[in-house]
Design a protein around this nucleic acid. Sequence first.
RNA 1: UCCCCGAUAGCUCAAUGGUAGAGCAUCCGGCUGUUAACCGGAGGGUUGUAGGUUCGAGCCCUACUCGGGGAGCCA
Length: 432
Amino acid sequence: MSTVTTVERLGRHVGETVTLKGWVYNLSSKGKLHFVQLRDGTGIVQCVVFKNDVAPELFEALGKLGQESSLELEGAVKAEPRAPGGFELSVKSGKIHQSVDGYPITPKEHGADFLLNQRHLWLRSKRPWATMRIRDAVITAVRRFYDERGFVCVDAPIFTPNACEGTSTLFEVEYFEQTAYLTQSGQLYAEAAAMALGKVYTFGPTFRAEKSKTRRHLTEFWMLEPEMAFATLDDVMNLAEDMLCAIVQHVLATRKNELQVLERDLSKLEAIQKPFPRITYDEAAKILAEHPESTFKYGDDFGAPDETILSTRYDRPVMVSRYPEAVKAFYMKRDAANPGKVLCVDVLAPEGIGEIIGGSQREDDLDAMLARIREHKLPEEFFQWYLDLRRYGSVPHGGFGMGLERTVAWICGLEHVREASPFPRMMYRITP
RNA sequence: UCCCCGAUAGCUCAAUGGUAGAGCAUCCGGCUGUUAACCGGAGGGUUGUAGGUUCGAGCCCUACUCGGGGAGCCA
């Protein structure tokens, strides 16, 4: 048998005879000539089978293959401008693993409900294929970014005894004789780890039981949470900015083809360069007050339409800092220079996808933290270990959380975050 | 929890209150350069469920079920 290779590497084998292993993406026959679009996971290539070039039984069998039939084809690689992708395989022999008919997902249009029910098969289609490869590149870029900067990956637990922030609706699970919850954030644990290791990040699944049915929400999503000891809000904002630039650059460098499959406007991504616009809550409030469509009231958090108004003003992510403490979490440090405000930042992605990052400098004073826990009426006994971080060597520190699926949805230009997850979990959907 | 929209062939959709159709998929036949190929033929239906109005309901009314995207809430 000849060299086994992949569609991705075909360009290195022009003129050679190779074997490809994959599935039929589409087949069309011209009688004595079959065109097999072969999908192998790394890409799709056109394979041409002339009747006179192969055994008669093989030619006949190939002509009957339905979509997603599995097979191996052997033939000569040639550069061919008429073929999608620029290369094609002139088939000399082959082996059929399984001949399929009736594959449910045809090359025509389908609705969201149908495709989500077929997600296990839908992943084989071009758009999910491209999206998953970009998602992978985002994850790689993130890990490389933190590794290069000396951050240590420390994973937070998924079972937690109580709500981290005390606000969200959590999923309850039976945990032997007691009730536990699925984590809604690894941040408090990241803070503990940062006091041990300096610079850390957690990266894992996060769960929210909120009954949110929008294109920005999943009940299970991946969140990246870096945390740094000896850091201020400015350090946190600089880190977020550098990281987003690094992610976008890595995707542009390694997944251009996939972005083109998704028909993404590359110039929108090429524009993602430092510096990002930075405005305060007060400045954002002023912008909204002058906007005819906004119903924003000063003192409130921004609603989704407000975020869209703000983010579409810029060609790169906008960083909004220093919100009123009443609308933010208990652990954020008050801003000494702005009474009533906290040292926090939200990063809003352009093109209407909304908030992709939320971060802050953390309250590091024991008494202030105790007071905030009481104001928010949180169960003090659950926070004793967290308060220990303020008792023993407290330092200024901070970090942020980035929603992976929202970030991928923004980079890919997706309509809905569910497409950024291989098997999305939503309010009314838990299968497949 | 609230608001709006939807449900007809495997899929995407059509059908003025009057005989349920098309394209794709499937099966059969044709074609040596197709790009979601094309051409000819065939099979495929309890119109989401339950009631109501009507001579007659896919279509009008009510309830329910399932789903969609938006609000709130959140990332």
